[in-house]
Write a protein that binds this DNA or RNA. Sequence first.
DNA 1: TATCCGTGGTG
DNA 2: TCACCAAGGAT
Length: 356
Amino acid sequence: MPVDMPVKQSVAGLLLDWYDGHARSLPWRTPPGAAARPDPYRVWLSEIMLQQTTVAAVGPYFAKFTGRWPTVKALAAADEAELMAAWAGLGYYARARNLIACARSVVRDHGGIFPATEAGLRALPGVGAYTAAAVAAIAFGERAVVVDANVERVVSRLFAIPDPLPGSRPRIRAHADTITPDVRAGDFAQAMMDLGATVCTARNPRCLLCPLADPCAARAEGAPDRYPVKPAKKVRPHRRGIAYWLEADGAVLLVRRPDKGMLGGMRALPGGDWADIAEAAPPVAAAWHMIGTVEHVFTHFSLSLDIHAVRLPGRPAADAVAAEWWPVALIEEAGLPTLYAHAAALGRAFSEVTPA
DNA sequence: TATCCGTGGTG
DNA sequence: TCACCAAGGAT
């Protein structure tokens, strides 16, 4: 489909022409230039899942969620524990809590219809400046300045912005505004992200394939990957912790972590928060065995989690808050975050070779 | 503004 | 191998 007249051969025109032939086909998308707009619910759900998360990782989760909860009304009526378990493994679990809160707000406050404006969307839980702009543009065709990490990279290079992130963000946004067209708002936003994901990549950008190579200032300088300029990295501290695999009668004791903080709201093995290993008291007094250590890397620290296990002939009275006995054979369905899924794998191995 | 918040792929 | 990175938001 030809580009609409007003954009001509501007940056937007070059980009939209490229997008018409190179758009990625994704489950939450409509083809470039399509007359029909995509379902706002699916656009919103995909945008939440894609926050700081790769397309490849999101794929199976998007299929699972849209299959189980096809509409925002269905999602609003979902069992919260079931939804959190379905999100397990995708990370950033505050997104899952906000997902329910947002769906319920849409149903309760907006009659089950997503707000069609950037400002209306921005007021929803879990919807920030980027997501509000993206949904407004993609699902409703509103001209919005959509700035994510891809756009930051493309724009920093296109204009060779010398000052480092995050201080450069106002300038980046101002430049992004100047190249955002009045037409094909959703296609333009997705084209910028596709360009950043497949051509204008963080490392080894493919300038020979880039539709914006000609106007790109960073390419003219000869070192496009020098942009965006970033601040010096910080050292990642290391912590140690303990988790307990307490098994009895074919079931293992699980707890639910507090809503705030790491892995908030998710099921876990008992064992504390890894801040002070001395406070990680076992759930019951028993002859515990150290069966292994799980190494895990989070965004701002790494962790060595020692797994202690015991198998008792009967279930003791566990005083842990919000504790539940979960069948060992069904542990895969508990929705454990990755750290505890790895710990549970050690626990099962222990279970198979240890008599009660 | 700076920090916190997961995970898996990759060059 | 490992530091970097990914369609950010809340506080």
